[in-house]
Design a binder for these strands. Structure first.
Lengths: 338, 338
DNA sequence: CATTTTTGTTTAAACGATTAAACAAATACT
DNA sequence: AGTATTTGTTTAATCGTTTAAACAAAAATG
């Protein structure tokens, strides 16, 4: 009794063909339709509370007006902010977003990707985990429009929008050096992900440039699993180094969070005992007595650009490949005061 | 040349009918199909990289295996955590999530809701903004399964999973009173949303119970728009009251965040000058010198329950209405030490 | 051996929309 | 008046699946 209302129902109610109802409701065949009939159809559609069955429409038109989004973890503030921007921007173009969190797990990533592709998402915005190259190549072969965001694989020619991680890390390290810190450590993920490697590379370049005495163990790499423990160890190592570090650059907000909690707990004073800087801006640091100097990513631009590039690609799928590196903004705050 | 592979293509390649291919790929008609043929079909499907067109399947089966999710704002940690749990739980049942942020804006909410319904989501999980009653009633009339989460409208009989806000606020206030605070203020949203009113009601009940000298202006209500300014004013009012407040309970993590920043800026010391407690647990407070005593919501249970209840409803849409109020957990921390 | 049953497969309708093409009636043109 | 055009509407195919029903051939039964 409560079956959904279809074009057919309206057609029957008004006494016209399904086609005519479709034409009216889509404002096609503009001039040709009898004004009175059109009005009656519209009125009946409203009265019967008709809603387009997008599924049927999609099947016919081969367009779902849907964007698939895979991020690392929607409950991480960076991902969440990105998701938010993408959602808003997609909405402007009348697209809906379907999403999933990969959890940095290639298997899970693949599963979500499959679901999105099977659901005929018109295009995808992806933040791929490690070892996702095969799936990327699959997408290319299937000619499914997609944009990588935050990360990319230098070996594969794809559209992407990312931070210039090298430059950002370089500048942050330069800033630390400029403050007079001599023994600058870095804690970054042990990962094959290129964007993370770029952060390390930027740090190392600045270290070399400044001819600061660098020892290999100033660069501490931590694993995603057991991140808390490994981060705490890394901090410990840097602070108990024979040449004790006087500043640390963190490869992400999550690492920084663990580290700061530990540093707090150990009663080190920032920046007197140790200066800190990190990637990603986070609310959390605002309440810390020495808010962290950080590299603020242009999340809004990243998200908006990704959506626009994707939609361009959907609309005309032989647009040229676009690769965008945006600059971060170094927000100098109390954790690195001279 | 790169058209997607359909059942028809496989059928042609193997030399059988489309129906047979469908049967094989869906493991229907188990015993009856020739083993060799079945194997060949499966092999061909794999070789051709066939992927079910979910759109077509959905049209026929009238099931999309999709859950629509509307939260207030995906970039708020509470929403994000909820989204994450819901996503994970939905995945367990092979459902995909489509989401949107209402931004507490009824118009936007309605728009997203429409999109989700038109896309034939099998069911919805909703955190409705103010004035969303009409849409709720619409859904009921259309018999679309849905579960309210975090919020509900007491005037409408619906499924919901929420925090027992009254109890949580009552207990938090009791705790403050127990610590010896006598002049306890509350800063909450000026809103018609029932769950927020419940927080106020719990606070007031505890104030009455403890016979603490309550004056109307110990309860400060702030507007969502211009939240920062109004929160700062509210804090100012409480601290410049003729009977200066010695403790404040905040109606949400967002309010608390603004308030703490302001309190910090004004150089008040927590909890010596002013004790604090708030709703919602947030990472951010961990780095504050006096981490905030807070009411931790059982986000995981809420999300999981909502998904399970929804799927029960989808599978059998005359299950009885279920209304769940979960208890919060008061996390006592340094902001309310005696 | 005739009949029933089982096995393996195909036919065809349906889901709810879109849209080119066909058609009929009214109007305009020469 | 006869033809061409415009106006208003319908017919029917199609998108890629699912699935009941029909069918044919092989196997089992009496």
């Amino acid at each position: 009794m409560n079956k959904k209302v279809s074009l057919k129902d309206i057609a029957n109610a008004v006494g016209v063909s399904v086609a005519l109802v479709s034409y009216v409701l889509n404002n096609k065949k503009e001039g040709r339709i009898n004004k009175a009939v059109a009005e009656k159809i519209r009125a009946t559609a409203l009265a019967m509370n008709y809603r387009t069955n997008q599924i049927a429409k999609s099947l016919k038109t081969n367009k779902t007006h849907t964007i698939g989004l895979i991020l690392a973890d929607i409950s991480n503030p960076f991902s969440a902010a990105l998701a938010r921007v993408i959602e808003d921007e997609a909405d402007k173009y009348n697209y809906t977003v379907i999403f999933g969190s990969s959890d940095e797990n290639p298997g899970k990533y693949k599963k979500i990707l499959d679901a999105l592709v099977n659901r005929q998402a018109d295009g995808l915005i992806l933040s791929p985990p490690e070892h996702a190259e095969p799936q990327i190549k699959d997408l290319q072969q299937q000619q499914i429009p997609f944009i990588l965001i935050d990360r990319y694989f230098p070996g594969i020619e794809t559209n992407y929008v990312v931070l210039d991680n090298y430059k950002a890390a370089y500048e942050a390290t330069q800033h630390l050096a400029g403050c007079g810190y001599k023994r600058i450590g870095m804690i970054n993920y042990a990962s094959s992900l290129f964007h993370l490697a770029e952060r390390t590379r930027g740090y190392l370049a600045a270290m070399t440039k400044n001819k600061i005495g660098f020892t290999a163990d100033y660069l501490q790499e931590v694993n995603m699993v057991a991140l808390k423990e490994e981060t705490e160890n890394a901090v410990y190592n840097l602070l108990h180094h024979k040449k004790r570090a006087d500043a640390i650059l963190f490869g992400s907000n999550v690492i920084a969070m663990h580290a700061v909690k530990y540093i707090n707990q150990q009663q080190y004073i920032v920046p007197k005992d140790i200066a800190l800087a990190c990637f990603d801006e986070t609310d959390a640091f605002d309440l810390f007595y020495a808010p962290l100097t950080c590299i603020k990513q242009p999340i809004k631009e990243m998200g908006q650009l990704a959506v626009r590039m994707l939609i361009d690609n959907i609309d005309d799928n032989n647009t040229k490949i676009k690769q965008v590196s945006l600059d971060g903004e170094l927000m100098v705050r109390a954790s690195t005061l001279g």
